[in-house]
Simulated assay, not measured.
Amino acid sequence: MRQGFPMATRGMTVGLLGGSFDPAHDGHAHITREALRRFGLDQVWWLVSPGNPLKARPPAPMALRLAQARGVMRHPRVRITDLEAHLGTRHTAATLRKLKAIYPGVRFVWLMGADNLAGFHRWDRWETIMHMVPVGVLARPGSGLKARRSMAAQVYDRERASLGAANRLGRMAPPVWVMADVPLNGASSSAIRARGDWRYPGTSA
């Protein structure tokens, strides 16, 4: 295994939660714990992105975001990574392609909040992503109706699996997705940044 890459062996099911995590917060930790419980995952890897191509504002430095994420998410089956920086990728489809080549036999599941499903059709090669890995969607405050009416949900309506099959999601052939209603946590990175008094630990601005 490459240095700095998490360990995973053939047959494992790994959930991938990507994003800027600027900053990471308890809402991220909450949906991660729910994903572990509901989708039959052996691990979850947070992919702390070098930057979100859909956002004009650059994120805080990677080192700050990684440290914050590791302080927020403490779980023996969760790994906080900067894999996309190591892989040299900025788009999810490219990240998935490289991870599947590096980890043959590992079953990956892409995880997202319902707020991301609402705009999923704007992602680079979003339909390719749907055909590469199963997708687990978790409810987020105020996003349920938009997610269910989203282009992705409509285009792949027939590929939506029942909640009863959620714990086998990683073993199902894509395209397949599940949307799980979970207890809601209203934390959001944008709301935290909007607070004038919030700073990354150890910084003054």
Results as ranks from 00 to 15, higher is better:
T92Y: 03
A85V: 09
R74C: 13
L184G: 01
H75E: 07
H86R: 15
N185D: 15
S188Y: 01
I80F: 08
R158Q: 13
Y103F: 13
D124T: 14
W126D: 00
G105R: 09
G202Y: 09
V178M: 01
R74N: 10
S150M: 02
R125D: 15
A114Q: 00
P141I: 02
Y200R: 09
A94T: 12
A139D: 11
A191R: 14
W123A: 10
A161F: 04
L184Q: 01
G170S: 07
R199D: 06
R125G: 09
A93W: 15
K100L: 14
P134E: 00
N185F: 05
P183W: 05
A147F: 04
M112G: 07
D181C: 04
G170H: 06
R148I: 02
R77A: 09
A139M: 04
A166D: 03
W177Y: 09
V133S: 06
S188M: 00
A153I: 12
W198L: 02
G136F: 07
G88S: 07
W126L: 00
G186I: 03
W110S: 03
V182Y: 13
E84L: 01
R148T: 10
I129N: 10
M73C: 11
G113A: 10
A194F: 01
D181M: 02
S188F: 00
N185G: 05
V176Y: 10
L99G: 03
W198Q: 05
A94R: 14
T89P: 03
R122S: 00
A152D: 03
Y156C: 06
A194Q: 12
R148E: 11
Y103D: 12
V72P: 06
A194Y: 01
M179Q: 11
A139I: 03
D82M: 01
P201M: 04
R168K: 15
T95M: 08
R79V: 13
S162R: 02
P174K: 06
M130Y: 06
R160M: 13
G170P: 08
A165L: 14
E127V: 05
L83S: 07
S189K: 08
A161K: 09
R158N: 10
A165W: 05
Y156W: 11
H75N: 14
M172T: 14
R90Y: 14
V137L: 00
R199S: 07
R77Q: 02
A180T: 09
H86I: 13
V176R: 15
R107W: 07
N167V: 12
M151W: 09
V78W: 07
A93L: 12
E159K: 03
V137Y: 01
I80K: 10
R195K: 01
G105A: 11
P104T: 02
V72E: 12
W123V: 08
L184T: 00
H121I: 03
N185Q: 15
S188L: 00
V135I: 04
A161Y: 04
S143C: 13
R74H: 10
D157W: 08
D157K: 15
M73Y: 02
A85L: 12
